[in-house]
Every structure is written in structure tokens, then in C-alpha cells.
Design a protein around this nucleic acid. Structure first.
Lengths: 234, 234
DNA sequence: CGGGCTTTGTGCACACGTTCACAAACCGCC
DNA sequence: GGCGGTTTGTGAACGTGTGCACAAAGCCCG
């Protein structure tokens, strides 16, 4: 069976679901499950079975008709496709409330994203230790990125400092950024940015709450059906 | 001009962008800007101008041709549509690393989502104070929800406890959940759930990094163009 | 070895989201 | 009051994502 180095582009919507499948499959493997059908996986992932099949078909034809998918093999294939066959060290900029929580959050290390460094501009924070990581001055960012071959940066600064952090990360050679600051970053083409904004998430929920309230008061009530990649309504 | 209580449904993709526009508009208002064109707003939000106009058109016709949009009025309208004309108290389940960071994060309170309560199942954590909030036992969840009229719950527990937390939140009367645990929650219809999974975000970035590496080594390089609601590539 | 049952992989139709392009509306100035 | 310049609001085309439905493929059993 050929390694099948897919040069094929996978739709973004699918890329966003693969990690979810992966998580579930790893859990299932841990419970001794050897095979799983698209329907079974769909059930656990809370999506449509056809979607699961189509998603997995982008990886290649790794199922067996009449049987389903071999869990271990599927885990291997998804890992490979997502580039999770090796670790990706990350550097965190900003050792405030959130930066500390992130550094201390075990989930990073466990899932193949070791914290290669945690930097802050504030001298009072430098050299304090959080989650086993010693905070380094912002100036050492470039060094850390170069030394540990970091390609992913996490921005956990206050909003006004976020753009500067992004500029420094890019200059240091980072090509992917996960931005927790509620700010729209401007970066050169070719740099991938993803934004996680807690306030935005809450405001989206607020919209649905408001809508519910308005509906129950006046109009008829619809079954709300959120979705769109992340987030869903049952 | 009639208040225009829109009973119209707004597309999810638009709902996800409105908070971003809002943020920018508030900033602009703070700098004394009175009017803004769709192009100006689009520039700041990193999106297409036509998209801005279409998004805003779902709220009603609040622009003036040849001039643009009045910033203050637009802020008011977006706030109203998102249900941000009053506070939405939230209750946080789980006072671990993340739960504490969330409780301590000023952004919640500032943006209209005061923390009405922070509960944990672990007695050792109960009564400790984090971010000005005293941790309460899990059993008091229902009380807190009822007393403060909470409709939004935040799950910041370890994965195995997340479903139980969701069940308790729903039983207590919460109708929207923001889930930080890397677990697919199962909830009754009518409950809105949004999931924020840091590992998933990193894995999506990993995919793009892996792709970049594969491309530069073998095939031709494409301009990567991520997007999909949140996250973007420049 | 063939027939029945199960499950994948995918063509097709539909829904949703994005972008273009342009008429309609408004401002300000002459 | 009309004319040129500007910007909105939206119809229409396009692209992406979803879900159905079914043929193809494999397993098991008689």
C-alpha cells in the first residue's frame, strides 16, 4: 500500500473536523474498539454520517465496505495528514492571566504542542516560573524561535500589544499564529492566523439568547440551528 | 424612524462577524470618528467591503449613501441585535487552570458578561477566591442560576466531567453553553452550544504548516487561503 | 460459490456564503 | 435646482459545503 502523500487540497471545513474525529478515535482505541462505521463515528462526533464519509474520503479510501474503518489505521492517517506525526513547539507571547493559564494547561504538551518559550515585555514577570516554564524577556523571542525551530506562535497579550507581538513573531520566522487578543491582526501573505475571541463567542450566544427571548414573547419559536464549523445547537 | 424589531433571521456567518465590527466601531468612536464607510470598516476588519454592506443590511438600512454609516448609531444597532443592551451573567463550571483564568479575565465583565458564579466539585477549591469570585460547590449551581437568572454557562472542567457539567447546567435552566472541554457534548434540542478547543485550533495550524512543508519540498506552492468564519490567512 | 446483508465512496441537487457590479440615493457646490 | 462625485443596498453569478441516495464492494453463511 503506497504512503499516498496527498498533494490534494482538503476543504477547510473538513480540516476543522478532522481533529474532532481524531480525538474520538483515540478515545475509542483506548477502549479497545478496533473498527468503527461512519455512522458510529458520526454519532459520537455529532454530525451526519455522509459528512464523515466524505471527510474521510479526502484522506484516501481507507475504509472497508461492509465493515467500516480500522480505528488505529485511521488515527495514523489523520495524524499524518494533520502533520501530527511530530511535535510542533509553540512560543507564547504574553504571560498575563491567559498566557499563564495556557502555559500551565497540560493539554498543549500532551497533544504534541510543547511550550518552547513564554515571553513577556514586563521585567517584573521575567524569570518567574509558570507551569514549569520560566518567563523570558520579549527580546529573546527571535532566539527562542530560531533555537527550537518554532513555527507556531500564540498571542496572549493585551489588545494594544497584539499587533506588535504579531510583527515580532513574523519577523522571527513564525508562520502560524493563534491570536487570543480581540484584535484583527495584519500580517504578510502566507502567514496563517486563527483567532480565538472569548467575547465574540459569548456575544454569539447572546444573540441566540436574545432571539429566543424575542421569539417566546412575540413570534413563533423556531428550533435554532447554529453550526458553522464550530459550535452547534442540538 | 421605527425601532425595527427585526424578526428576520440573520445568517450565522454574519452573526459571527458582527461582534468584530462592533469592537472596531467602539474603538473608532473612542477616537472621535463619527462616520465610517463600508470600505473603511472592511479594511479594519480584514474583510471585503461588499460583505460588510450585506452584513449590515441584515440589520436594516442604517447607512447614508454617499456618506457611510454613523458610528454611534451603528454601535447601538449592532448591540441591540446581539442582545447586548443588557448584561448576561454567566456561570463557570470548573475552577481549574482555565476556569480561574476565565474568572480572572477582565474581558468578561467589561463586555457585559459578569461572572455570576464559579463552581467546582472539589471541596479543596471551594471557598478559595479567584479574580474576586469565591468558588462555590457544584451543588449550588442550580441556586446560582436561579438567583441570578443566568442563561449562559461556561464549561471549564476536565474532559470526563464535561458532559455531567452540561447536564447539570441544562437541568438548572441554562440555555446556552460555551464549552472549553475537548469533548462533543450531547444536549437537548433548543440548547445552543459553542465549543472552543485549543488543541483543535493548534491542529488546524499544524495542518497548514505541514502543507507548507510538503509544498516547499515537492510540489508548487499555493497561496494558502484559510478562512471560514474565524481564522484567516493573509 | 452464490445470495443476502452491511457499509463505503461518490454523483448530484440543494443550501449557504461570498463577491461583483450597478442602479438608486444622497451630499455639496456652483 | 441641477450636476458630478461618492457610497449604499441588492440582484445575480459564483464557489463552497451539506446531505441524499445509490451503485460498488466486501463479509458471512448456508
Amino acid at each position: 500500500m503506497p504512503p499516498h502523500r496527498s498533494r490534494r487540497r482538503i476543504p477547510e471545513a473538513t480540516v476543522a473536523r478532522l481533529p474532532v474525529y481524531l480525538q474520538i478515535l483515540v478515545d475509542q482505541a483506548g477502549e479497545g474498539v478496533e473498527n468503527i462505521s461512519s455512522e458510529g463515528l458520526a454519532e459520537l462526533a455529532g454530525v451526519n454520517a455522509a459528512k464523515v464519509r466524505k471527510d474521510l474520503s479526502y484522506l484516501g479510501s481507507y475504509g472497508t465496505r461492509g465493515v467500516g474503518y480500522e480505528v488505529d489505521y485511521l488515527v495514523y492517517q489523520i495524524r499524518r495528514e494533520l502533520g501530527l506525526d511530530h511535535d510542533w513547539p509553540v512560543v507564547i507571547v504574553g504571560a498575563g492571566n491567559l498566557g499563564q493559564a495556557l502555559a500551565g494547561y497540560g493539554g498543549f504538551n500532551d497533544r504534541g504542542f510543547p511550550v518552547a518559550g513564554l515571553v513577556d515585555i514586563d521585567d517584573d514577570k521575567v524569570d518567574t516560573v509558570v507551569g514549569g516554564i520560566r518567563v523570558r524577556p520579549l527580546d529573546e523571542l527571535a532566539q527562542i524561535v530560531a533555537a527550537r525551530n518554532v513555527s507556531i506562535g500564540v498571542i496572549a497579550t493585551p489588545p494594544p500589544a497584539a499587533q506588535d507581538a504579531a510583527d515580532r513573531l513574523v519577523k522571527a520566522g513564525v508562520t502560524s499564529i493563534l491570536n487570543f487578543a480581540p484584535v484583527v491582526l495584519s500580517v504578510p501573505v502566507g502567514i496563517t492566523v486563527r483567532k480565538v475571541d472569548l467575547a465574540v463567542e459569548l456575544q454569539i450566544l447572546s444573540y441566540h439568547e436574545q432571539r429566543r427571548a424575542a421569539a417566546s414573547q412575540g413570534g413563533q419559536l423556531h428550533a435554532v440551528s447554529t453550526d458553522r464549523g464550530r459550535g452547534a445547537t442540538a
